[in-house]
């Protein structure tokens, strides 16, 4: 098990931790370029493509996306296609956010499901934005813990809810 930090569920009817978050504008769909429509030319996987994968993940607490809450930003996404590495920093809305691990887990799962297996995926908290930054990062980097967490039906349900599109 991943530890108590993952346990609280938003469905419990408890008051929201951050009831009135600041809402940011969503980026539009990435415009399709002529190059992308050309059958022959290869398109490298770039920062925006990774960002598009995670920006529509739902927040576990609000009916909003991580992008709208500014939890993920394109500038905090780094990808190197040639070396097959991805690094994503995310910023919890408040420093004591108990959902931080759950959000990180959702991002990680989404990337693992959506990227070719050759990629090494690193998801961590933007430095200095969360009280227990270290502990959360450690949990997210631990493969076995992540795998174990996903075998927990309740957790998987919450993660899947975050990952399925808006109702």
């Amino acid at each position: 098990m991943v530890g108590p930090a993952l346990a609280p569920s938003p469905a419990g009817g408890v008051a929201l931790e951050n009831a009135n978050p600041l809402i940011y504008r969503r980026q539009g769909e990435r415009p399709v370029t002529a190059r992308e429509e050309d059958d022959e030319l290869p398109d490298a996987i770039d920062d925006r493509e990774i960002f598009d994968l995670i920006r529509s993940i739902n927040d576990p607490e609000h009916p909003l996306t991580l992008e709208e809450l500014n939890v993920v930003e394109q500038v905090r996404v780094k990808v190197n296609d040639a070396e097959s590495t991805v690094s994503v920093e995310f910023t919890p809305t408040i420093p004591h956010c108990s959902m931080a691990t759950l959000i990180g887990l959702s991002i990680k799962v989404k990337l693992i499901r959506s990227l070719p297996e050759r990629f090494k995926v690193d998801v961590h908290i933007t430095p200095g934005t969360h009280a227990s930054e270290h502990a959360v990062n450690k949990q997210l980097a631990d493969k076995e813990r992540v795998a174990a967490a996903l075998e927990n039906a309740h957790l998987l349900e919450v993660v899947n809810q975050c990952l399925s599109g808006r109702p």
């Binding site: 996987i45 493509e49 598009d52 994968l53 989404k110 499901r113 959506s114 039906a153 309740h154 998987l156 349900e157 919450v158 993660v159 899947n160 809810q161 990952l163 399925s164």
Partner: peptide
């Protein structure tokens, strides 16, 4: 890739809780 991500994501959710 974009379509593959969407399709694969949907198949992952098949038969799991929270879909």
């Amino acid at each position: 890739r974009k379509e593959a991500v969407t399709a694969r994501g949907e198949w992952f959710l098949l038969g799991t809780p929270g879909r």
